[in-house]
Amino acid sequence: MALPMRRTLVSLHRATCLCLTNAEASLGLRHPVYVPVRTKKRYFIPPAAGIKQRTEGNMEAKSRAAGLVMRQEFSERPINIACTAGVFDPYIPPEGDARLSTLSKEGLKQRTEQIRQSAASQLAIRKIKEHDTLFKTKDFAVRAQEIFTEAHHALIQFNKVKLHSLVTERCYPEMTRGNRYKTIHWRFIESLEPPRVVHARCPDMVSKGNLYGQVTVRMHSKQTLAVYDRFGRLMLGSEETPKDVLEYLVIERHLVNPYGLWRLHGKIVPSWAPAKDPIVKTVMIPGPKLRVDQEFDAVNYEVPKPAAVQWSK
């Protein structure tokens, strides 16, 4: 039954297609022919409208909606965890470096402040000994004096590698600033008093448990210092005349770091300390204009004096 029905439908389909073909031929209808023509390449130019309304926030929102990840730019200062940025709870030396009588009011205040500082120093020394088992106050004072002398010898020899291992990143620019075109002659003669530890602190930075040890050492010694400029003229000090120098050195170490070293971190200058000697700066005096065949005679040359200027009030 199904086979005769299929044959009937196929015959009807063929007959219908034949009738349609004959009708198109009688009417003269033809199918259109499409011929591809190559034209000029046209590049897409985005519209310039709405540029003023485009902000960084809108662009970032559109990029996030499109699924693009934009890299964030942070203007942050780098942090150096090898040393601290300053001296925590700095030691305040007593005026004149002498102990006043406890019977006076000022002497009683000085004694009370010393007791308070010594109690805090003992707690800090205990923390330092937990990380540095070889730490002893008597031996450390001598070691601090050696670090001080070695750092200054490396400074006058311009040994940057050794100087970095003896001073912290905070102390290095303070020691080397302004010494590019100068010659330094420094000499350690002797110690007038044995160095001793007068202050100790153990602060933490960035996170709890990131400990740093800061020990203040009192050093009274005799030294010589002479600074020459690039022309060889003396600017400061003298190589023959020694001076008595009283200094309070701050030595620091990153206690958490097992490879950390005790390095010079800075100095504490008391308010009652005498002022430093002024630096004698050299200036250039303009000389006469000479020809190629002339020579300058410094003996017979007179330095011209500046002309007098009348200043009006």
Score class of each variant (00 low, 15 high):
3 L>I: 07
5 M>R: 14
16 T>K: 13
20 L>H: 03
23 A>V: 06
30 R>S: 09
31 H>I: 09
35 V>W: 01
40 K>Y: 07
40 K>A: 10
43 Y>P: 02
44 F>Q: 11
45 I>T: 14
56 E>A: 12
57 G>L: 09
58 N>F: 13
59 M>G: 06
60 E>Y: 07
64 R>F: 03
65 A>P: 04
69 V>Q: 11
74 F>V: 15
74 F>P: 07
80 N>C: 12
83 C>V: 06
90 P>H: 08
98 A>D: 09
98 A>V: 15
101 S>R: 10
101 S>N: 15
105 K>Q: 12
111 R>S: 11
111 R>P: 00
115 I>M: 13
117 Q>L: 09
119 A>E: 09
124 A>W: 02
124 A>Q: 00
128 I>F: 00
137 T>K: 15
137 T>I: 08
139 D>V: 01
140 F>Q: 07
142 V>N: 12
146 E>C: 03
148 F>K: 05
148 F>G: 04
153 H>P: 02
154 A>E: 09
162 K>F: 01
162 K>Q: 07
170 R>H: 10
176 T>S: 13
183 T>H: 12
192 L>T: 09
193 E>T: 11
195 P>Y: 00
197 V>Y: 00
197 V>T: 06
202 C>S: 12
202 C>A: 15
204 D>I: 00
210 N>H: 15
214 Q>W: 10
214 Q>H: 14
215 V>F: 03
220 H>A: 04
223 Q>W: 01
224 T>C: 12
228 Y>C: 04
232 G>H: 10
233 R>A: 05
234 L>N: 10
242 P>R: 03
245 V>R: 05
246 L>S: 07
247 E>M: 11
251 I>H: 06
252 E>F: 05
252 E>M: 01
252 E>C: 01
253 R>T: 05
254 H>A: 14
256 V>N: 06
258 P>Y: 10
261 L>E: 08
262 W>Q: 08
264 L>T: 05
265 H>F: 02
265 H>N: 09
269 V>F: 05
269 V>Q: 14
273 A>Q: 08
276 K>M: 09
283 V>N: 01
284 M>I: 05
286 P>G: 14
286 P>E: 13
288 P>E: 04
291 R>A: 08
292 V>Y: 09
294 Q>R: 11
294 Q>C: 05
295 E>L: 11
295 E>P: 01
297 D>E: 09
300 N>G: 10
301 Y>H: 08
308 A>H: 11
312 S>I: 12
